[in-house]
């Protein structure tokens, strides 16, 4: 019985899909991973918390109206554990947020990168890069976020 169970577990571990890009509710399910784009606006609130962090931005549309965007980000614990420089995210700053939009909701997205007023970019390397760094015993580095 035990031996049979082991075979099942090994098959699951070796041959099947990973969930490295998935958070609490499914990021890939809720947000269109193929529709990445930028929004630029004033950061009106930054909620660093679990189970989801959120950025709120006022974005001026082409017709002059202002849209309030709600942008989800990683959990507080994940962002801290992965060394994201959160102290540089300031309410009142104008940010460009690279995001993937909600599949269902208008003006809702998931953050991939934040470009600050000085042009520097803040990214969450994501769980996959974090896990690989742990496996390889090296520092976490990322050029492109993976979640």
């Amino acid at each position: 019985m035990l031996r049979a169970t082991n075979h099942i577990l090994l098959a699951g571990a070796l041959g099947l899909a990973t969930q490295a890009g998935l958070a609490h509710h499914s990021v890939s399910g809720n947000f269109d991973q193929d529709a990445r784009h930028d929004i630029t606006g004033t950061l009106t609130a930054f909620h660093l918390r679990n189970p989801h962090s959120h950025l709120e931005l006022d974005v001026v549309e082409e017709d002059g109206s202002v849209s309030r965007w709600l942008v989800e980000w990683g959990t507080r614990n994940d962002l801290i554990r992965r060394g994201v420089d959160l102290d540089r995210v300031k309410v009142g700053d104008e940010l460009t947020v690279t995001l993937v939009p909600s599949r269902r909701l208008e003006h809702v997205g998931y953050a991939r990168a934040l470009t600050l007023p000085d042009g520097s970019v803040i990214r969450d390397c994501g769980f996959r890069a974090f896990r690989e760094a742990l496996l390889e015993g090296r520092e976490l580095e990322c050029e492109e976020p993976d979640r």
Partner: peptide, 8 residues
């Protein structure tokens, strides 16, 4: 423990 993989 930290997750490495998940089966479908």
């Amino acid at each position: 423990w930290l997750q490495l993989s998940a089966g479908r």
